Amino acid sequence: MSKLILTNEVAGLGGAGDVVEVAGGYARNYLIPQGFAVAWSRGGEKQVASIRAARESRAIHDHEEAVSLKNTLESKAVSLTVKAGREGRLFGSVTQADVANAVKAAGLGDVDKRKVHIPSAIKSVGEHEATLRLRDDVTAVITLQVVAAK
């Protein structure tokens, strides 16, 4: 078992600034090389405090504000224009950053791309869904209208 400090949110494990214990191979082969975590040390406690402070500054503090944003996001479809071929297949796929930028461009609020979850890769035009975790207890499911660029 390895003790690590998470530098990014990892689904099923924790958020940035959390101290977790994971299997040695998982830490050595995935979390540390991908930049999701650093090895825990006594001096790392200062790093934990700064990571948590940054995480708190980006977080939506008020539950009512999060629910209001959720209702706004779920009420409208977000349009996303991408390059596509003749049959409607995309050149590449829609990323989390693309979804976050589309939400911001639609005037529905500023969303952190790390809070966006796309259940399966979006590789075609049409209507798709994505999940946004606004807070630990508030999740919004948005509808994406993926449209081919002219």
Rank of each mutant, 00 (worst) to 15 (best):
L13G: 04
A149G: 11
A27F: 09
I122P: 05
R52H: 11
A102M: 04
K115S: 03
T95W: 01
V82T: 01
E127C: 08
K3W: 05
A106G: 07
N71A: 14
V20L: 01
A100G: 05
E129Y: 03
V111E: 02
V99I: 04
G25S: 08
H63M: 13
T72E: 15
V111I: 10
V48R: 00
P33M: 07
V20Q: 02
A23I: 04
T131M: 08
V38Q: 11
I5V: 08
Q47I: 14
W40T: 02
A39L: 10
L73V: 09
S79R: 15
E127I: 13
R89A: 12
V22Q: 05
T139W: 06
E65M: 13
E21N: 09
Y30H: 12
K104S: 13
E9P: 02
R28C: 07
I122M: 02
G44R: 10
L73W: 11
H63W: 10
H128P: 06
E127H: 11
V125D: 03
G15L: 12
V48T: 03
G85K: 04
K113P: 08
N8I: 00
H117R: 15
T131C: 07
G126R: 07
R86W: 06
V94A: 14
L90K: 11
F91P: 08
A100S: 00
K104E: 07
P119L: 02
E65H: 06
A49C: 01
L13I: 06
E129D: 08
R58C: 10
A59V: 01
G107D: 02
A39T: 15
S2Y: 02
K104V: 07
M1L: 08
K76F: 13
R42T: 13
P119W: 00
V147Y: 01
L144T: 05
G107R: 09
S68W: 06
K115E: 01
K83D: 05
H128I: 00
S124H: 12
S79Q: 15
S57T: 14
A84S: 00
Q145C: 00
V138N: 12
Y26W: 15
Q96W: 02
V10K: 11
L73T: 01
D18Y: 03
N71P: 01
L6H: 03
N29D: 06
K150G: 14
A84L: 06
E127L: 13
I60F: 11
R89V: 04
V82H: 12
G24A: 10
T139H: 05
V116A: 11
V125P: 14
E127F: 05
G25K: 03
G92A: 10
N71E: 15
V22S: 08
A140W: 07
K150S: 14
L134H: 01
L69T: 14
G44F: 10
E64I: 09
T131G: 00
G12A: 01
R89Y: 11
S68I: 14
V38L: 07
V22L: 00
A49Y: 12
D137V: 10
R55Q: 12
V78I: 11
V20R: 04
K123M: 06
L31C: 12
